[in-house]
């Protein structure tokens, strides 16, 4: 299936596009990828799109033509199932051709269901099993702290993912070591795959948990680009501590029938739903 005409010439290639425009493009492209692959995690793709757009186009320092540049800021997609949005952001950032997005999950594609650093440039570590990305990000931040001008490390976790205990091991280490070049972002969409986090195993009081582990906390609207740009500026953080950004988001953001619905965690739209989704994301 060929991409829709307006998606074939995406805004991702336009250096003048705003973060908001890029976020919307990531949403449209993610939905198209999930629709074509008949697989994926659209709910989380949509909740994380503004965060990803802000990181890649409003915060991080990197050079897609030199993905191994030692001084680059690092991003770890710990919620590795949301590859629709992640791959779209990487392609828009210039790590690989935009056309390759249409191979999502096809046989032998570099765009595996979960990201593999051996397959594609721009992927720092393999994720997919939850609770893996954050400890790796802590190791990166420690490596960065050895440098005279530390690079910054960002890690995006799902809120449900925080039920994995490995995260709290990493939180303790980062707090203890006062890793001020580390920013963890919680995509706080309040839903895990089957139900609300608070009805499954509650996370609240979430901000207090992070403070208790020695972190500073910023709570923000995860769909407000200006606010995200402000809290996601590369460090070092003045607090001398790692920063947790609790980004309040809506799962399925931007598509009316997906918003706030756990069923769209890994739901796949039919043709009618797909067309409606693109119409709603048209602006």
């Amino acid at each position: 299936m060929s991409p829709s005409p307006d998606l074939a010439q995406p805004i991702g290639g336009d250096a003048g596009a705003s973060c908001a425009e890029r976020a919307n493009w990531i949403r449209r492209r993610s939905i198209q990828m999930v629709y074509e692959a008949k697989l994926g995690h659209p709910g989380g793709d949509l909740s994380s799109a503004d965060i990803l757009a802000t990181l890649y186009f409003g915060a991080m320092r990197y050079d897609p033509s030199n993905p191994a540049l030692p001084s680059r800021d690092r991003f770890v997609m710990s919620k590795g199932h949301c590859t629709g949005a992640f791959y779209s952001a990487l392609a828009a950032a210039g790590y690989f051709p935009l056309e390759e997005l249409s191979t999502y999950m096809q046989p032998l594609s570099r765009l595996n269901g979960h990201p593999n650093r051996k397959y594609l440039p721009g992927i720092e570590t393999n994720t997919g099993p939850l609770g893996h990305g954050f400890p790796v990000a802590v190791g990166m931040a420690i490596a960065g702290s050895f440098e005279p001008d530390p690079f910054h490390v960002y890690v995006l976790v799902g809120d449900g993912e925080l039920q994995e205990g490995s995260n709290w091991e990493a939180a303790m280490t980062a707090g203890h070591r006062r890793l001020s070049n580390l920013t963890l972002i919680v995509d706080r969409n309040h839903l895990q795959q089957g139900a609300a986090t608070e009805d499954t195993v509650s996370l609240e009081p979430l901000a207090d948990k992070w403070r208790a582990f020695g972190w500073t906390v910023e709570e923000c609207d995860g769909h407000d680009i200006d606010g995200l740009v402000r809290v996601l500026a590369p460090g070092p953080h003045e607090s001398g501590r790692p920063l947790c950004v609790i980004a309040e988001t809506v799962k399925g953001k931007g598509v009316s029938f997906m918003e706030g619905q756990a069923s769209w965690h890994h739901g796949v739209p039919d043709k009618e739903q797909y067309e409606q989704a693109l119409r709603e994301l048209g602006e």
Partner: peptide
């Protein structure tokens, strides 16, 4: 680098250090 009694974290931290050139 002593990460405490936390083996999952320890191995992940190792991967991150390798990513950072160590």
């Amino acid at each position: 680098i002593n990460v405490g009694i936390a083996e999952q974290n320890m191995v992940g931290v190792g991967a991150g250090l390798a990513n950072g050139g160590r």
